[in-house]
Every structure is written in C-alpha cells, then in structure tokens.
Simulated assay, not measured.
Amino acid sequence: MTAIYESRDRADAATEKLKIFAQPQRLMILSFLLRGENSVSEIDAATGIGQPALSQQLAALRQADVVKTRREGKQIWYDLADDASRLCVRTMEALLTDKPDPQQIMEAATRTVAPKKKPVTGTGTASFAKIL
C-alpha cells in the first residue's frame, strides 16, 4: 500500500472521499446506517433531515459508493456499502467525541455491530419463500 504522502493522486482520492463524510446530514445518515439496513422513511424519522434534503444526500452517498440500495416493491432500503465504510464511520464516531480515548477508538474500529432483523413483508407464496 502506498502511503498518502508518496502519491499526489492518492492524496487527491483521499480528499475526495473525506469530502463525502464532511457534511453533517450525510454523517448523520451514515451513523444511523451503522445499526443496519433501513428504509428512507426510517432514516428520515431517525435523523429528522426531511425531504428533499434526505434524497439529495442519499444520492450523493450512492454516487460515492458509500451506501448500497435494495428495492422491495416501492420501498428502497439503504445500508453501508461495505466493511470499509463501516470502519470509517465507526472510527469517526469514536474519534470525534469530546474526549477521544485511543482504546475506545481501537475497540470501535474493530467491533462488529449485528444488523437489526427486518420483518418479512407481503403475503402469499412469495412471502413464505422469504421466511425459508
């Protein structure tokens, strides 16, 4: 792995990635998604961002490949895209407290959070198949 100081391209890429996290509403969304996959309405209820700002921020996060989506009927579900995204958000939450503790930061960075279980929705044979 090339250290950031060794490559201007790497430094530029890192800066672009940091810009995604350097927006309060996006950071709130990402922090909430640490708890697992959620629908747009659940994200809105938890963060209070409201429309259309929530849609705009979710689009920016999708474009940056920090979140992934899943469609179920008319509803879209959001989750963090990968373990690297989880690690970034978890580490920021630990680092950006009033008094960061190095031990807590390491624990936060290495801890796994079990995603919450989503209830199975719908009716009929297709719903039954989802249970299996």
Score class of each variant (00 low, 15 high):
82 D>Q: 07
103 Q>V: 07
80 L>Q: 00
46 A>G: 14
91 T>M: 05
61 L>A: 02
83 D>N: 08
25 Q>E: 15
29 I>P: 03
96 L>E: 14
59 A>N: 15
72 E>Q: 11
99 K>N: 13
45 A>W: 04
54 L>D: 09
35 R>N: 07
102 P>D: 08
98 D>E: 14
31 S>M: 03
84 A>Y: 13
82 D>R: 12
75 Q>G: 03
74 K>V: 03
49 I>A: 01
64 A>E: 03
24 P>I: 06
41 S>N: 13
52 P>N: 05
98 D>S: 12
73 G>W: 12
96 L>F: 14
57 Q>T: 05
28 M>R: 00
55 S>F: 03
76 I>C: 12
56 Q>L: 10
83 D>I: 05
80 L>P: 00
89 V>C: 02
24 P>A: 05
69 T>A: 07
87 L>C: 12
75 Q>M: 09
64 A>V: 13
68 K>D: 15
66 V>S: 12
75 Q>S: 11
53 A>G: 02
70 R>L: 08
79 D>A: 04
66 V>L: 09
96 L>W: 13
90 R>W: 06
59 A>E: 14
79 D>P: 00
30 L>M: 11
77 W>R: 11
29 I>E: 08
26 R>N: 03
99 K>V: 10
36 G>L: 07
26 R>A: 02
94 A>S: 04
51 Q>K: 15
67 V>S: 09
94 A>E: 10
24 P>F: 02
65 D>I: 01
48 G>E: 06
98 D>L: 12
